[in-house]
Amino acid sequence: MMKKKKILFFIYQMGAGGAARTLLNIVNKMDRDRFTPILVTLDYNGSYESYLEPDVKFIKLETKRLRSAIVPLSKVIRREEADIVFSTIPNYNTIAILGTMLSQSGAKNVVREAAFLGGTPAADFKLKLYGLLYRRASRVIALSHGVKENIVKRYKVKPGKIDVIYNPVDVETIQDLMKTENMRPEHQQIFQKEDKVLITAGRLVEDKDHHTLIRAFANLNKRLFNTRLAILGEGELEQELKQLAADLGVGDRVHFLGFQENPYVYFHHADLFVLSSKREGFGHVLAEALATGTPVVSTKSRPGAIEVLDHGEYGEMCEVGNERQLEEKMLKLLSMDQENLRQIATKGIERANEFHAEKIAKEYEEMFVKTSNRTK
């Protein structure tokens, strides 16, 4: 019988972000006959911790500072006799690689790169520094083919060291959660009116380009008076975006609903999901929206959104920052008859299943086995 591989997953905290959600899906879906997952975080409480399977060994380092985590992480790697140390996001990958080196344990690093970054000389220089460390890792995981191209170009990592594995989407859990009624009473009122409700979800930061979305919605609202826009998420631009909505005369029709642990019930009750991002490494929220059967409009935010929606095969797409195109695409879907919308919903769910968590977990498992067996 093959000895089980010990996979140590390292992340800052099991918080509300996409990286934590990805780790949660991989850890929970791993074949326990072949692997023993160990999760290590800094000393924080994260909202996804309660969703971990009870058999997952969960270790919190006694520090809240990332830079202070190298030595304690190295001790855990050595003590747990990890075969592989898996991490995601450049800063955490750096700590994971340095911790593994210090452990002198023989564990191999697998780093996951989610972002599509670079472009300025300063950013490109920083990515080359990350690349120096990435070249010490056994494997690099890109969550889309576009991200892989970026890692090769800007991180200077050889293509043969990089595997493309899409984000896992827990379709059944999403479809269970979307049918619950745990929406706050004041939020329910938004969805119970006769109005058409558009929804988006993401941090209120520059990259998500809510400015373009709000301007496009304001124009749409002049043509379809019975529309509302619900925005899920928190961030530094909240007050600025609220002011923009007010200035455009739609302050009473744009609803800022904050972070929601179960966004899927909101997606399910909305008429349309809209993503206005400037760039997306994968566009995980698009795949989740598809899983709820909600029609989708997205910008051609490279590289991920284009891959998730397959160049518009599974949702309407427009150019980044083009509020007129975004308005027209939203109007097109909101004007469709119910039969066409049902067909779109069915097709979207089929697409979401191509990123099914169990399928993606299997791809990670095979990569872990090959990496573990490969000599450096």
Rank of each mutant, 00 (worst) to 15 (best):
I7A: 02
M14E: 02
G18I: 04
N25H: 04
N28S: 03
R32P: 01
D33T: 07
T36V: 13
L39V: 14
T41R: 05
N45T: 09
G46N: 03
V56Q: 00
K75E: 13
R79V: 09
S87Y: 08
I95Q: 13
I95V: 15
L98W: 13
G106C: 12
A123G: 11
K128D: 07
L133C: 11
V147N: 12
P159T: 08
V169F: 01
D170A: 04
E172S: 08
M178E: 10
K179I: 00
K179A: 01
H187C: 06
Q188P: 02
L198S: 04
G202P: 03
L204S: 13
L204R: 15
V205E: 15
D209C: 09
H211P: 00
N219H: 10
L224S: 05
R228A: 11
L229G: 05
E234I: 06
K242C: 07
A246L: 13
G249S: 11
D252L: 12
Q260T: 02
V265E: 11
Y266C: 02
Y266I: 01
F273P: 04
V274T: 06
S277L: 09
K278I: 14
R279S: 15
G281M: 12
V285Y: 03
L290S: 05
S301Q: 06
E307H: 12
V308H: 04
G315F: 06
E319V: 04
V320S: 07
Q338G: 05
R342L: 15
G348A: 11
H356A: 06
H356G: 01
M367P: 02
T371F: 00
